[in-house]
């Protein structure tokens, strides 16, 4: 990072730069810092649902959360879920991007269609999957049952998990696809041609030339996808399984919602949010460190 130019360099007064920054600063303060501080404050309190009585309990909420076996199970489940979603979304997107990068007829249409799902809101995407795979009223759900596969994600935890993983990954494939495609197109043709002249076959060219050159993109996407799976899949889970059956699809973010919004335990929910906040900070720091190093290799 280069040092910023002194303010007097570009602007005569201090007022104009501040005024220009103000909207963004206001958004950051109101929508990011204020709620974060509120969460931190509430995580030390215990209060009734209506906010009429509250008392300070120190770190008790954190202790409650971290010693709750169901929360720890949710932590492991979230890691499993996120890895599966990121892995699936990245693999499928990379495969599709490599195919779309070839000179094929109708490539433009094909690319456009692949980007579409990204415009679908997570909750809407989830409802589409719900209607397809509902065991009693869904087209594929009934088909699976007709084929003799006991498909009932409302009762079978593994099937419910599979369904939310696929629905969440499907949503993210388009996003990854765009980045992979851009990454592929920025690889100089000459390098690939040189490899081809040296006798490298397509598979070998992919693994020895294309993939290493794509790795910064892939790493960036990995972090983005993990963050997505951790925090943005709420809509999918809420619409399809509501964390059930049992707690089979309850991730940390869903747990924080259930405890805070549905069960009105604001203290424990705030404590969970603070823990999640720490996780994001760590994840983001790791990303910046690693990417900075990667970019200047």
């Amino acid at each position: 990072m280069s040092a910023p130019a002194p303010a007097s360099f570009l602007f005569r007064g201090r007022l104009l730069p501040l005024a220009l920054l103000a909207p963004q600063l206001a958004v950051t303060l109101i929508f990011f810092y204020w709620p974060a501080v509120q969460a931190l404050y509430q995580s030390f309190l215990r209060e009734d649902a209506f906010g009429l009585s509250r008392h300070f309990v120190g770190l008790e909420n954190f202790a409650d959360v971290l010693t709750d076996p169901t929360w720890l199970q949710a932590l492991w489940r979230t890691i499993l879920f996120s890895t599966a979603v990121a892995g699936l979304a990245l693999t499928v997107a990379l495969f599709l991007a490599v195919q779309a990068d070839k000179h094929i007829r109708g490539a433009a249409t094909y690319k456009t269609l692949l980007i579409w799902p990204y415009a679908v809101a997570p909750a809407v995407a989830a409802v589409l999957w719900l209607f397809m795979f509902h065991p009693h009223i869904g087209l594929f759900g009934r088909m699976l049952n007709g084929l003799g596969i006991a498909w009932d994600y409302k009762l079978r935890g593994d099937q419910a998990m599979l369904l939310v993983i696929i629905a969440s990954a499907w949503k993210q494939v388009s996003y990854n696809f765009i980045f992979f495609l851009a990454g592929l197109q920025s690889i100089p043709r000459s390098v690939l041609e040189a490899a081809a002249i040296d006798g490298a076959r397509p598979m070998r060219r992919f693994w020895t030339v294309v993939f290493p050159l794509l790795s910064p993109t892939a790493f960036f996407l990995l972090v983005v996808n993990l963050t997505y799976a951790f925090f943005d899949t709420f809509g999918v889970i809420h619409a399809i399984t509501q964390g059930g059956p049992g707690k089979a699809t309850e991730t940390l973010i869903y747990r924080a919602y259930t405890d805070g919004v549905m069960n009105l335990n604001l203290g424990t929910s705030a404590a969970q949010s603070v823990i999640l906040m720490v996780m994001v900070i760590v994840l983001t720091m790791a990303q910046f460190r690693f990417i900075e190093r990667k970019v200047h290799y």
Binding site: L155, R156, G157, G244, P245, G246, M262, N263, N265
Partner: peptide
């Protein structure tokens, strides 16, 4: 009090029993 949450707990436990867990 908190019966909304208790209902969810009972539903979860029943689901796990019906799954055979």
């Amino acid at each position: 009090g908190g019966f909304v949450e208790i209902r969810v707990i009972m539903q979860e436990e029943m689901e796990r029993a019906l799954q055979g867990q």
